[in-house]
């Protein structure tokens, strides 16, 4: 057996940090959303439209969606690493997921600013 020197892949910390920070952004957004539900009940199309027309709300919403997508990326990548062992298949799946997530981000942005 060849005894190869074991070293780290020199990445991983950033993904781990992204997952923690994006979680905090999402918690903040969910709390804000809960407050909105509480204060503006009953919810109507107009109340949604008013709150989402505010530029600060638009940016906060987009930021939370990006946080969600980044969070999902790290999680889904971890699942692929655990369960999809042939690396060409894994790479292909990862590329598909990256493209999908980027599409979702663009879609969310067009929804928020296109209304």
């Amino acid at each position: 057996m060849v005894n190869r020197v074991v070293v780290g892949a020199h990445y991983g910390l950033r993904d781990w940090l992204i997952q923690r920070i994006s979680a905090l952004v999402m918690v903040a957004y969910v709390c804000a959303l809960m407050l909105f539900f509480y204060w503006s009940a009953p919810l109507t199309y107009d109340s949604w439209k008013t709150v989402l027309s505010h530029p600060f709300v638009k940016i906060f919403t987009l930021l939370s969606i990006i946080a969600l997508l980044l969070h999902a990326w790290v999680g889904v990548r971890d699942i692929f690493m655990d369960y999809v062992h042939p690396y060409p298949v894994r790479l292909m799946l990862q590329v598909i997921v990256i493209l999908l997530l980027m599409m979702y981000a663009l879609w969310a942005a067009t929804l928020l600013w296109g209304m």
Partner: peptide, 11 residues
């Protein structure tokens, strides 16, 4: 720390 910075080894 370099040798631990790895999605498998540590994370």
């Amino acid at each position: 720390l370099d040798n631990l910075d790895d999605p498998y080894r540590l994370f």
